[in-house]
Design a protein around this nucleic acid. Structure first.
Length: 298
DNA sequence: CGAATTTGACCCGCGC
DNA sequence: GCGCGGGTCAAATTCG
């Protein structure tokens, strides 16, 4: 990946990256990235706010319709969410999948099994394929059989990644997460952990990994948006929080800085050890809805 | 004992 | 078409 595809900015204690391709995060840190100058910024919302609600939807930001019709405009008119369970963020604008519905995108992945089950009932036309598959499955003696409709492409929620200088891998963000996988990352000695929000209807996922170039940095990538305003009920576990966090209480880890990036539209969340997250309007891509990018004038 | 985590295997998309 | 790597599943294990 070339430096043209991402930008690196410095502002005091912060460093954040504008990523057009999150695949970069697979262990590669932009040490050779183009360096620019960050414009002065002002606090707009906390990162917790983003995580919890509604107020900020990358998909919506990326939606030309919304921008065009003024559905989202001006400073405090933040578009309410329909929740990640049902009306999740629209498919990524980069997706070329002609689409059906945003709901379909929301269901995707985590409810794949359910969908597949339904499809099994609905799509008799693929029975032949299933027979063929079952034959292959028998050969492998596999545990899971998930016939999937051919031609159905996997779509992803818009994703946000941010880097955090932290001693702990799993940053507490006010939500409860269940780890459902861990994978070794190519070119990195550190594994990537996969988490899902434990709230029943919430399909938000996140991955956590350390930068192999700077082990002190934890790269967290969020996918989807929480459908609930408050953290899932705690079960007295170490990960849970009894009450919604505030910017000052969440991410209450040892020394850390946060650097957030996402694609393809660029908004940046930063957090210093002394301040809450800040939402920035990062100009480089210039495709951001003005609604969420209120930027204080210098 | 139930929930959460670990871990190996499988599925899928993508690049060559 | 094949191989690689990312992402997910689910049985086994650990933990509270």
């Amino acid at each position: 990946m070339s430096a043209n595809d991402r930008d690196l900015y410095f502002h005091d204690d912060f460093t954040f990256y504008a990523e057009r391709d999150l695949s970069l995060l697979s262990g590669e840190m932009p040490n050779g990235a183009a360096i620019g100058t960050l414009q002065p910024w002002s606090p707009i919302m906390s990162f917790d706010d983003y995580l919890k609600l509604d107020a900020f939807d990358p998909g919506e930001l990326a939606s030309p319709e919304l921008v065009a019709d003024g559905a989202v405009n001006s400073t405090n008119n933040l578009t309410p969410s329909t929740g990640c369970g049902g009306g999740t963020s629209p498919a990524s604008p980069s997706s070329s999948v002609p689409s059906s519905s945003t709901e379909a995108a929301g269901e995707e992945d985590t409810s794949r099994r359910k969908k597949d089950h339904l499809k099994q009932e609905e799509e008799e036309e693929i029975e032949k394929d299933q027979k063929l598959q079952s034959k292959a499955e028998n050969d492998k003696s596999k545990k899971v059989s998930k016939p999937k409709k051919r031609g159905e492409k996997r779509r992803r929620e818009p994703r946000f990644a941010f880097m955090t200088k932290s001693e702990v891998d799993h940053l507490e963000d006010g939500y409860r997460w269940r780890k459902y996988g861990q994978k070794a990352v190519k070119n990195s000695p550190f594994p990537r952990s996969y988490y899902r929000c434990t709230a029943q209807t919430c399909l938000v996922k996140k991955t956590v990994e350390r930068s192999y170039q700077d082990p002190a940095i934890v790269v967290t990538t969020y996918e989807g948006r929480h459908a609930h305003h408050s953290p899932a009920p705690a079960r007295g576990s170490t990960q849970s929080l009894a009450s919604p966090p505030t910017a000052s209480t969440s991410f209450r880890h040892h020394r850390h800085h946060h650097h957030l990036m996402h694609q393809p539209n660029l908004h940046c969340f930063l957090q210093s050890p002394f301040q809450g997250f800040q939402l920035l309007d990062c100009d480089p891509l210039q495709d951001i809805s003005p609604s969420f990018t209120q930027k204080s004038q210098p």
